[in-house]
């Protein structure tokens, strides 16, 4: 029996984290909003710490609806892109060194995005997760949800369609 021994866990983690860093780290607007991502396997959670410059209504105060929309859109796009890259990263088709050098393949593009505001975003940290409901060859559909203190009381939900990058063929 010749079976390859499993890879050391730190090698796997380094590769997966490098892919995530490459996707998120180089985007100025994601840094501008202060968004980062927690990773558990292939599940990503967007984290947006509260900051004064995110406020849209200074009297309540509440987070700007545009910020919440952007947070959902970023989470949807990064989650979709990460799942899309996953297999190539795992198989070694995409090299970790290339990712770390900032060499990314072309990413999906947003076609449209709909956001429902469910509760006002309070001046505190926000979280978001996205679910890819369909990832086709040309189009993908993604749902996203953002919440603050209670996972069961979302502040907003979004639905997005993306145009997938063309393959070589």
């Amino acid at each position: 029996m010749s079976r390859r021994p499993p890879e050391p866990v730190q090698v796997i983690k380094q590769r997966r984290d490098a892919a995530l860093t490459a996707l998120v780290g180089g985007v100025p607007y994601i840094n501008f909003l202060g968004i980062r991502f927690d990773r558990r396997g292939d599940e990503l959670t967007g984290v947006m710490p509260f900051g004064e410059n995110l406020i849209g209504n200074p009297f309540l105060p509440a987070i700007h609806g545009g910020v919440t929309a952007a947070f959902l859109e970023v989470t949807a796009l990064i989650s979709l892109s990460y799942l899309w890259l996953w297999e190539d990263v795992e198989s070694g088709k995409i090299e970790v060194a290339d990712l770390e050098a900032g060499q990314l393949p072309r990413l999906p593009k947003t076609i449209d995005f709909t956001v429902d505001y469910l509760r006002s975003g309070l001046p505190r940290d926000s979280y978001a997760r996205a679910r890819v409901t369909r990832s086709g060859r040309r189009y993908a559909s993604v749902q996203a949800e953002a919440w603050q203190d209670n996972r069961d009381r979302p502040i907003a939900q979004g639905a997005a369609h993306f145009l997938m990058p063309r393959g070589d063929g």
């Binding site: 985007v27 994601i30 840094n31 545009g66 952007a70 859109e73």
Partner: peptide, 20 residues
């Protein structure tokens, strides 16, 4: 430049357009 969504092209992120 702080609102860029694609560093390779310098195109503004859709999220900033949404906020606008």
């Amino acid at each position: 430049e702080r609102f860029v969504g694609d560093p390779q092209t310098g195109v503004i992120h859709g999220g900033a357009v949404s906020a606008l």
